[in-house]
Amino acid sequence: MTTLRETPPQRLRPLVPVRARAALTLAACSLMGLVAFGWPFFVTPGPALDTSHAADAPWLFALLLPLLAAVVVAELTSGGMDAKAVALLGVLAAVGAALRALGPGTAGIEPTFLVIVLGGRVFGRGFGFVLGAVTIFAGALVTGGVGPWLPFQMFAAGWVGFFAGALPQVRGRTEVWTVAVYGLVAGVAYGALMNLWFWPFAAYGPEVSYAPGDSLAANAHRYGVFYLTTSLGYDVPRGVFTMLLVLLLGPAVLAALRRAARRAAFDATPTFVPPPEQPWR
């Protein structure tokens, strides 16, 4: 009788390698993305953005971000994704988009995060970023939800996938718990970021709104109040739900993704042998 031996844990070659050029692009775009999210905190009192054109600033960044997202995705995928990686990306994005269309969406319950976090975990940082962005984009197309929030969501979900791919390489029960805790943190952080982009629009009252020209500490305090009163009730359930999903489905999904990666044989490098010289040429 033959015994099936567990293959030793080995790192899968990242499907979307983050080379130096792509890493620099990602860093620059992420920096601009962070500014687009959190410009109310970075702006110094004085410039036109802060005084006369404060109402236009969110739209300026909403127009700028799609270009940044396009640049970073183009740069990441230009390293030569083969057909298997593209098909896998498309199918995982389809799973995420279908979950997004079907998911209740109420109380922040977002099963899409499971796909992005676990996909990024198994297939690496670069793939995680592209998977997050493409999943959100495809989900918006399926549900007809393309709006000014879309580029912000794409960046935030991209970061969620990226950092899932950057988690330490552990296996077994530790891995599931690491990913589950990461899901909790990512769910809450995603909500805090997505609130931030909407905050300048949300003129709910002078105590919780962005005040142009005010000091950083005062604005941060008002954002804290805004966050506590309006969205913490959404973000904590999202994080907890993601964590529970990872604990429940994580081991099976991780095994399924690794099995797919083995079957696709991403590590196999084809070698081409030139044909023997034809005498009639």
């Binding site: 995928t77 990306l89 498309g90 994005a93 389809a94 988009a97 279908a98 269309a101 592209v130 495809a138």
Partner: peptide
């Protein structure tokens, strides 16, 4: 590549 992946996603989701 990303566009092809999106088309795949749109076709597979239903």
């Amino acid at each position: 590549e990303a566009g092809v992946a999106c088309v795949v996603a749109l076709s597979f989701a239903p």
